[in-house]
Amino acid sequence: MQKVKLHINGFTRTLLVNAHETLLDTLRERLNLTGTKRGCDQGSCGSCTVLLDGTPVLSCITPTIRCDGRKILTIEGIGVNGHLHPVQERLASDGGLQCGFCTPGVVMTAVPFLQENPDATDDDIKEALSGNLCRCTGYKKIIEAVRHAAEDLRHG
């Protein structure tokens, strides 16, 4: 067991963790942050994506002990004061989700991507979201929603 200090969504938690504990387990099973989804537990589907110091990582293959002292942002930390982030707004309004299980991972990938690539083309968006599997939408409305969110952010 090792003591780690995690800065999660702006709040600091200190935990004792085993070496094999993944960040996904820590979030879902210990901290009840169940917005982050377990789709494969193998790093193949993207549903568990969270931000580690601002960069998207797959929490199911990220050991929690490697996160000591680092900033973690989960889907619960996106949006401020009850306002949705434009990516969330557009996914919801433009049909960019159906069952919604992959959606938190899509949000956590698209939000930092648009921050760094405000003028992203559809091809850029496709590339950025290539690690997020969705079985419902055929991706079309997800890609459109992210493009619309980029426009909202530029004009916003």
Partner: peptide
């Protein structure tokens, strides 16, 4: 339920 889904 779209807002529930995009917010986790």
């Amino acid at each position: 339920d779209a807002v529930q889904k995009v917010t986790g």
